[in-house]
């Protein structure tokens, strides 16, 4: 009996502007590929069930749960992770300025959702930010600072 474990495929993905070729099981998720094949540790595993947002990345500029998105559906898509943000990224600078974290485990995913929001809506209201971050859980209670930091980079 052939095992599903042996069914692998070769895929080429575009991650942060670079083409990456990987060999993975046919049912591999984007999160598995990012962390375990490409060594990009910014995208985190929190639940694997679309319930915490720790794994959020951008696929063609929209936030996507990497923990359940199968890679074989991503041919030709542009994937962006926190590692793709520049050295002087204003959102990261604002989060540091506000010291908007405790453990910071939730932050890379939140940063990607906030990016997508700010790209779409450069001057969001507080309520827009709360809506955009609703897929994300933070157990340390850093919420107030995170929201303030994002508000501070909103264009007036």
């Amino acid at each position: 009996m052939p095992s599903i474990l042996d069914e692998t495929c070769n895929l080429t993905l575009t991650v942060n502007g670079r083409a990456e070729t990987v060999t993975v099981p046919t049912d591999a998720t984007l999160l598995e590929v990012l962390r375990e094949r490409l060594g990009l540790m910014g995208t985190r595993f929190g639940c694997g069930q679309e319930q915490c947002g720790a794994c959020m990345v951008l696929v063609d500029d929209s936030p996507v749960f990497a923990c359940t998105r199968l890679v074989d559906s991503l041919d030709g898509s542009e994937i962006r992770t926190v590692e793709g943000l520049g050295e002087d990224d204003p959102l990261i600078a604002a989060l540091l300025e506000h010291q908007a974290a405790q453990c910071a485990f939730c932050l890379p995913g939140i940063i990607m959702s906030a990016k997508a929001l700010l790209d779409r809506t450069p001057s969001p209201e507080r309520s827009d930010i709360l809506e955009a971050l609703d897929p994300h859980l933070c157990r340390c209670g850093a919420h107030p600072r995170i929201v303030d930091a994002i508000l501070s980079v909103a264009q007036p």
Binding site: L40, G42, R44, A104, F105, L107
Partner: peptide, 9 residues
């Protein structure tokens, strides 16, 4: 420790 942790790792 934050700068590093915000970017993952």
């Amino acid at each position: 420790d934050l700068a590093r942790k915000l970017r993952g790792g």
